[in-house]
Write a protein that binds this DNA or RNA. Structure first.
Length: 250
DNA sequence: CGAGTTTGACCTGCGC
DNA sequence: GCGCAGGTCAAACTCG
Protein backbone atom coordinates (compact mmCIF):
# COMPACT_ATOMS: atom_id res chain seq x y z
CA UNK A 1 0.00 0.00 0.00
CA UNK A 2 2.78 2.34 1.03
CA UNK A 3 4.76 1.34 -2.03
CA UNK A 4 1.74 2.15 -4.16
CA UNK A 5 1.39 5.69 -2.75
CA UNK A 6 5.14 6.26 -3.16
CA UNK A 7 4.80 5.18 -6.73
CA UNK A 8 1.91 7.60 -7.22
CA UNK A 9 3.91 10.44 -5.67
CA UNK A 10 6.80 9.69 -7.97
CA UNK A 11 4.47 9.61 -10.93
CA UNK A 12 3.01 12.95 -9.91
CA UNK A 13 6.47 14.45 -9.52
CA UNK A 14 7.44 13.12 -12.90
CA UNK A 15 4.28 14.57 -14.46
CA UNK A 16 5.07 17.94 -12.93
CA UNK A 17 8.59 17.72 -14.27
CA UNK A 18 7.31 16.77 -17.71
CA UNK A 19 4.98 19.78 -17.62
CA UNK A 20 7.85 22.07 -16.68
CA UNK A 21 10.01 20.60 -19.39
CA UNK A 22 7.22 21.02 -21.93
CA UNK A 23 6.92 24.68 -20.94
CA UNK A 24 10.68 25.04 -21.26
CA UNK A 25 10.47 23.28 -24.58
CA UNK A 26 7.91 25.76 -25.88
CA UNK A 27 9.86 28.75 -24.57
CA UNK A 28 13.06 27.49 -26.11
CA UNK A 29 11.33 26.72 -29.38
CA UNK A 30 10.18 30.33 -29.53
CA UNK A 31 13.67 31.45 -28.59
CA UNK A 32 15.13 29.40 -31.43
CA UNK A 33 12.62 30.90 -33.83
CA UNK A 34 13.65 34.40 -32.79
CA UNK A 35 17.34 33.49 -33.04
CA UNK A 36 16.85 32.04 -36.51
CA UNK A 37 15.07 35.21 -37.62
CA UNK A 38 17.89 37.31 -36.23
CA UNK A 39 20.42 35.10 -37.98
CA UNK A 40 18.56 35.62 -41.27
CA UNK A 41 18.58 39.38 -40.69
CA UNK A 42 22.30 39.34 -39.91
CA UNK A 43 23.05 37.25 -42.99
CA UNK A 44 21.08 39.58 -45.24
CA UNK A 45 22.89 42.59 -43.73
CA UNK A 46 26.22 40.85 -44.31
CA UNK A 47 25.23 40.10 -47.88
CA UNK A 48 24.28 43.74 -48.46
CA UNK A 49 27.61 44.87 -47.02
CA UNK A 50 29.51 42.41 -49.23
CA UNK A 51 27.65 43.62 -52.33
CA UNK A 52 28.36 47.23 -51.45
CA UNK A 53 32.03 46.38 -50.89
CA UNK A 54 32.23 44.66 -54.28
CA UNK A 55 30.71 47.67 -56.05
CA UNK A 56 33.17 50.02 -54.38
CA UNK A 57 36.16 47.78 -55.16
CA UNK A 58 35.12 47.57 -58.82
CA UNK A 59 34.87 51.35 -59.00
CA UNK A 60 38.35 51.70 -57.52
CA UNK A 61 39.81 49.11 -59.90
CA UNK A 62 38.45 51.07 -62.88
CA UNK A 63 40.82 53.88 -61.97
CA UNK A 64 38.44 56.54 -60.83
CA UNK A 65 36.89 56.60 -57.43
CA UNK A 66 33.18 56.88 -58.05
CA UNK A 67 30.70 56.97 -55.26
CA UNK A 68 28.68 53.78 -55.24
CA UNK A 69 25.09 54.70 -56.12
CA UNK A 70 23.68 53.12 -53.01
CA UNK A 71 26.20 54.64 -50.65
CA UNK A 72 25.15 57.82 -48.93
CA UNK A 73 27.56 60.73 -48.66
CA UNK A 74 26.18 61.64 -45.26
CA UNK A 75 28.30 60.90 -42.21
CA UNK A 76 27.85 57.30 -41.24
CA UNK A 77 25.91 56.68 -38.06
CA UNK A 78 25.95 53.56 -35.98
CA UNK A 79 23.87 52.56 -33.00
CA UNK A 80 25.35 50.41 -30.28
CA UNK A 81 23.52 49.04 -27.30
CA UNK A 82 25.66 49.11 -24.19
CA UNK A 83 25.23 48.66 -20.51
CA UNK A 84 23.24 51.75 -19.34
CA UNK A 85 25.41 51.84 -16.22
CA UNK A 86 28.52 52.11 -18.33
CA UNK A 87 29.26 55.84 -18.49
CA UNK A 88 32.20 55.57 -20.85
CA UNK A 89 31.30 56.85 -24.31
CA UNK A 90 33.37 54.20 -26.04
CA UNK A 91 32.25 52.38 -29.15
CA UNK A 92 34.60 49.48 -29.77
CA UNK A 93 34.85 49.21 -33.55
CA UNK A 94 38.32 47.75 -33.89
CA UNK A 95 40.06 51.08 -34.45
CA UNK A 96 42.02 53.00 -31.87
CA UNK A 97 40.61 56.42 -30.98
CA UNK A 98 41.94 59.35 -29.03
CA UNK A 99 39.42 61.52 -27.28
CA UNK A 100 39.97 65.24 -27.82
CA UNK A 101 36.85 66.80 -26.44
CA UNK A 102 33.50 66.46 -24.76
CA UNK A 103 30.53 68.75 -24.90
CA UNK A 104 26.97 68.86 -23.60
CA UNK A 105 24.69 69.73 -26.47
CA UNK A 106 21.41 71.58 -26.33
CA UNK A 107 19.17 68.84 -27.68
CA UNK A 108 20.59 66.05 -25.53
CA UNK A 109 21.46 66.11 -21.83
CA UNK A 110 24.03 63.36 -22.33
CA UNK A 111 27.50 64.66 -23.17
CA UNK A 112 28.89 64.18 -26.66
CA UNK A 113 32.44 62.87 -26.91
CA UNK A 114 34.78 63.71 -29.80
CA UNK A 115 37.35 61.16 -30.98
CA UNK A 116 40.12 61.16 -33.58
CA UNK A 117 41.63 58.01 -35.05
CA UNK A 118 45.03 57.47 -33.44
CA UNK A 119 46.02 54.28 -35.26
CA UNK A 120 47.93 56.13 -37.98
CA UNK A 121 49.57 59.57 -37.69
CA UNK A 122 47.99 61.00 -40.83
CA UNK A 123 44.55 59.51 -40.35
CA UNK A 124 41.98 62.29 -40.04
CA UNK A 125 38.88 60.21 -39.32
CA UNK A 126 36.76 61.59 -36.53
CA UNK A 127 33.83 60.23 -34.65
CA UNK A 128 31.27 61.68 -32.29
CA UNK A 129 29.66 59.49 -29.67
CA UNK A 130 26.56 60.43 -27.75
CA UNK A 131 23.83 58.55 -25.94
CA UNK A 132 20.48 58.36 -27.67
CA UNK A 133 17.85 60.72 -26.28
CA UNK A 134 15.19 58.03 -26.52
CA UNK A 135 17.19 55.17 -25.06
CA UNK A 136 20.13 55.94 -22.79
CA UNK A 137 21.47 52.45 -23.24
CA UNK A 138 22.10 53.13 -26.93
CA UNK A 139 25.22 54.95 -28.06
CA UNK A 140 25.04 56.85 -31.34
CA UNK A 141 28.40 57.12 -33.08
CA UNK A 142 28.85 59.38 -36.10
CA UNK A 143 31.89 58.77 -38.31
CA UNK A 144 33.45 61.46 -40.50
CA UNK A 145 36.34 61.10 -42.90
CA UNK A 146 38.22 58.22 -44.41
CA UNK A 147 40.87 55.99 -42.81
CA UNK A 148 44.20 56.13 -44.65
CA UNK A 149 45.30 52.82 -43.21
CA UNK A 150 44.09 49.28 -42.88
CA UNK A 151 42.43 47.80 -39.84
CA UNK A 152 45.24 45.23 -39.84
CA UNK A 153 47.47 48.02 -38.54
CA UNK A 154 45.51 47.42 -35.39
CA UNK A 155 47.71 44.42 -34.69
CA UNK A 156 49.92 46.90 -32.89
CA UNK A 157 47.24 47.94 -30.51
CA UNK A 158 46.01 44.43 -30.01
CA UNK A 159 49.34 43.13 -28.84
CA UNK A 160 50.90 46.21 -27.35
CA UNK A 161 50.59 46.78 -23.65
CA UNK A 162 50.38 50.54 -24.11
CA UNK A 163 46.98 50.67 -25.69
CA UNK A 164 44.14 52.98 -24.88
CA UNK A 165 43.54 53.84 -21.27
CA UNK A 166 40.20 52.80 -19.91
CA UNK A 167 39.74 49.97 -22.36
CA UNK A 168 40.76 46.59 -21.01
CA UNK A 169 43.74 45.01 -22.75
CA UNK A 170 42.72 42.79 -25.61
CA UNK A 171 39.19 44.10 -25.70
CA UNK A 172 39.83 45.58 -29.12
CA UNK A 173 40.53 42.16 -30.53
CA UNK A 174 37.59 40.39 -29.02
CA UNK A 175 34.97 43.07 -29.01
CA UNK A 176 32.12 42.73 -31.45
CA UNK A 177 31.81 45.53 -33.97
CA UNK A 178 28.84 47.81 -34.17
CA UNK A 179 26.39 47.57 -37.00
CA UNK A 180 26.16 50.27 -39.61
CA UNK A 181 23.11 52.24 -40.46
CA UNK A 182 22.64 55.29 -42.57
CA UNK A 183 19.85 57.80 -42.52
CA UNK A 184 17.83 55.85 -45.04
CA UNK A 185 17.77 52.54 -43.27
CA UNK A 186 16.32 51.22 -40.09
CA UNK A 187 18.90 51.59 -37.33
CA UNK A 188 20.45 48.28 -36.45
CA UNK A 189 21.33 47.97 -32.81
CA UNK A 190 24.00 45.70 -31.51
CA UNK A 191 23.72 44.56 -27.92
CA UNK A 192 27.11 44.89 -26.28
CA UNK A 193 25.73 44.34 -22.82
CA UNK A 194 25.81 40.57 -23.08
CA UNK A 195 27.24 39.27 -19.88
CA UNK A 196 27.34 36.38 -17.48
CA UNK A 197 23.75 37.15 -16.62
CA UNK A 198 22.81 35.41 -19.84
CA UNK A 199 24.40 32.17 -18.74
CA UNK A 200 21.18 30.62 -17.40
CA UNK A 201 19.69 30.90 -20.88
CA UNK A 202 22.69 29.06 -22.22
CA UNK A 203 22.33 26.40 -19.57
CA UNK A 204 18.67 26.07 -20.51
CA UNK A 205 19.58 25.65 -24.12
CA UNK A 206 22.05 22.93 -23.32
CA UNK A 207 19.43 21.21 -21.20
CA UNK A 208 16.97 21.58 -24.03
CA UNK A 209 19.44 20.03 -26.44
CA UNK A 210 20.07 17.06 -24.21
CA UNK A 211 16.39 16.45 -23.62
CA UNK A 212 14.75 17.05 -26.94
CA UNK A 213 17.05 17.65 -29.87
CA UNK A 214 18.34 15.21 -32.39
CA UNK A 215 22.13 15.15 -32.78
CA UNK A 216 21.89 17.03 -36.08
CA UNK A 217 19.78 19.82 -34.61
CA UNK A 218 22.08 19.98 -31.64
CA UNK A 219 25.04 20.36 -33.94
CA UNK A 220 23.26 23.13 -35.82
CA UNK A 221 22.53 25.03 -32.61
CA UNK A 222 26.06 24.46 -31.38
CA UNK A 223 27.47 25.71 -34.66
CA UNK A 224 25.27 28.77 -34.54
CA UNK A 225 26.19 29.62 -30.96
CA UNK A 226 29.86 28.89 -31.49
CA UNK A 227 30.14 30.98 -34.63
CA UNK A 228 28.34 33.98 -33.21
CA UNK A 229 29.44 34.02 -29.62
CA UNK A 230 32.62 32.05 -29.06
CA UNK A 231 34.66 32.22 -32.22
CA UNK A 232 37.03 35.19 -32.02
CA UNK A 233 37.85 34.82 -35.71
CA UNK A 234 34.23 35.47 -36.51
CA UNK A 235 34.12 38.68 -34.50
CA UNK A 236 37.51 39.81 -35.81
CA UNK A 237 36.50 39.06 -39.39
CA UNK A 238 33.22 40.89 -38.92
CA UNK A 239 35.05 43.80 -37.30
CA UNK A 240 37.35 44.01 -40.29
CA UNK A 241 34.44 43.89 -42.73
CA UNK A 242 32.61 46.61 -40.84
CA UNK A 243 35.73 48.72 -40.57
CA UNK A 244 36.33 48.39 -44.31
CA UNK A 245 32.75 49.40 -44.80
CA UNK A 246 33.31 52.52 -42.68
CA UNK A 247 36.45 53.36 -44.67
CA UNK A 248 34.75 53.01 -48.01
CA UNK A 249 31.36 54.46 -47.24
CA UNK A 250 32.50 57.68 -45.58
C1' DC B 1 57.71 59.17 -17.94
C1' DG B 2 54.76 58.67 -21.78
C1' DA B 3 50.25 58.23 -23.54
C1' DG B 4 45.54 59.10 -22.96
C1' DT B 5 41.66 61.75 -20.60
C1' DT B 6 39.43 65.75 -18.69
C1' DT B 7 37.65 70.19 -19.00
C1' DG B 8 37.48 75.15 -19.42
C1' DA B 9 38.62 78.43 -22.91
C1' DC B 10 38.59 79.68 -27.45
C1' DC B 11 37.16 79.56 -32.40
C1' DT B 12 33.76 79.40 -36.05
C1' DG B 13 29.47 79.21 -38.41
C1' DC B 14 24.77 80.39 -38.52
C1' DG B 15 20.39 82.65 -37.60
C1' DC B 16 18.21 86.79 -36.20
C1' DG C 1 26.80 92.97 -35.03
C1' DC C 2 25.34 89.89 -31.49
C1' DG C 3 24.39 85.71 -29.29
C1' DC C 4 24.14 80.90 -29.34
C1' DA C 5 25.63 76.25 -30.16
C1' DG C 6 28.80 72.99 -31.90
C1' DG C 7 33.55 71.85 -32.56
C1' DT C 8 38.48 72.12 -31.30
C1' DC C 9 42.54 73.25 -28.53
C1' DA C 10 45.68 72.66 -24.95
C1' DA C 11 47.16 72.69 -20.14
C1' DA C 12 46.50 69.98 -16.24
C1' DC C 13 45.67 65.68 -14.61
C1' DT C 14 45.58 60.47 -14.32
C1' DC C 15 47.27 56.01 -14.74
C1' DG C 16 50.19 52.03 -15.82
Amino acid sequence: MEAHSTCERKEETLRAEVKLLERDNEALRLMLEVMNKKLDTLQSHLQEMKEGQMRINLNQINGSIVEAPTVSKKPLQIFVRTDPNDNSLTVKDGYQWRKYGQKVTKDNSSPRAYFRCSMAPGCCVKKKVQRSIRDKSILVATYEGEHNHDLHDNSLCQTSSSTTRGIPKGSMASCPPPVMADDNSEPVILDLSLSASHQPCRRHTENFDQQYCSPSSQNKIQEFVDSLVKDPNFTVALAEAVARSITNQT
